[in-house]
């Protein structure tokens, strides 16, 4: 009691009491946002309990999985991986120049600022949206999926690539410059060797993500396993849905493991 009183008299208006008031305000705000979103999202936990019989029946419909059409599903899954491969490769080809042009230690501000904004735009729009747009342009099918992944992934990789470039050691670059090399040679000999391990690692990581994304862009008609998945869900064929999901999980897991292994040896 006696020790606490002087502390308050030293700073009666601020310090302790003000910060506790502030944190109370923040907590109130957080709870307010949660309550507000609860309403908007129409969260009804009672439905889970009330409809538990439905849920059980629904879940039971998934088992046993129906692998009758596994050949078709696997071949569609391979198409999905092929979409991801080309979406990623085209993105890397574009992300290298765009990444370099959005690095502040390579390009002047009047170049890297607009390029960065362009890449922001490519990244901001989800690949599903791009897929729907490209379907209009090139028709239904895997190619629309490739284009969608290409644009979106270019935006992501360009940002990651340029962050790696901005973190390089400038001294070796100056060493190359001192020999009379031109700007492109400075980049090829001084910059690229330094960022290569990170670039490869980012690319593999995006390839993993793109296999997952490619299985979704199919849902809007852009080819691959997504088309099949959409069909079986819409026809309430949950045993087949389960089989398709298991095939996706198996492929994604294997690809993740392989690329994790490659990235580990690179770092």
């Amino acid at each position: 009691m006696q020790t606490a009183t002087p502390a308050k008299t030293v700073d009666p208006s601020g310090g302790f009491s003000r910060s506790s008031l502030g944190s109370l305000l923040i907590w109130g705000l957080v709870l307010g946002v949660l309550a507000w979103s609860w309403q908007g999202a129409e969260i009804r936990p009672m439905a889970l309990i009330g409809d538990s019989a439905n849920m059980a029946e629904f879940a039971a419909g998934f088992f046993p999985p129906n692998f009758a059409d596994w050949r078709i599903h696997v071949s569609e899954m391979i198409v999905t991986v092929q979409i991801a491969i080309w979406g990623t490769v085209l993105a890397v080809v574009c992300a290298v120049p765009f990444g370099l042009l959005s690095s502040s230690n390579i390009a002047p501000a009047w170049i890297y600022q607009p390029v960065r904004r362009l890449m922001d735009a490519a990244r901001a729009i989800n690949e599903m949206v791009f897929a729907m747009l490209f379907i209009v342009a090139v028709g239904l099918g895997p190619f629309a999926g490739v284009l969608a992944l290409w644009v979106h992934t270019t935006g992501i990789l360009a940002k990651l690539f340029s962050e790696a470039v901005e973190a390089i050691d400038p001294q070796p670059v100056e060493g190359i410059r001192a020999t009379g090399a031109n700007v492109l040679e400075e980049i090829v000999y001084g910059v690229i060797p330094q960022v290569m391990p990170l670039w490869v690692s980012y690319t593999l990581y995006r390839f993993e993500s793109n296999v997952r994304s490619a299985s979704v862009v199919g849902m809007v008609g852009a080819g691959g396993i997504g088309v099949t998945l959409y069909d079986v869900i819409r026809s309430f064929d949950y045993a087949q849905t389960c089989a398709v999901m298991l095939i996706i999980i198996a492929f994604v897991t294997v690809i993740d493991l392989i690329s994790a292994r490659i990235r580990k040896t690179l770092m």
Binding site: Q171, R177, A178, G180, Y189, G190
Partner: peptide, 16 residues
Amino acid sequence: RSHIGFIFQQFNLVGR
């Protein structure tokens, strides 16, 4: 610069 060999304190070779 191609006529000038520049030797740096930190060598400035490309490590990789």
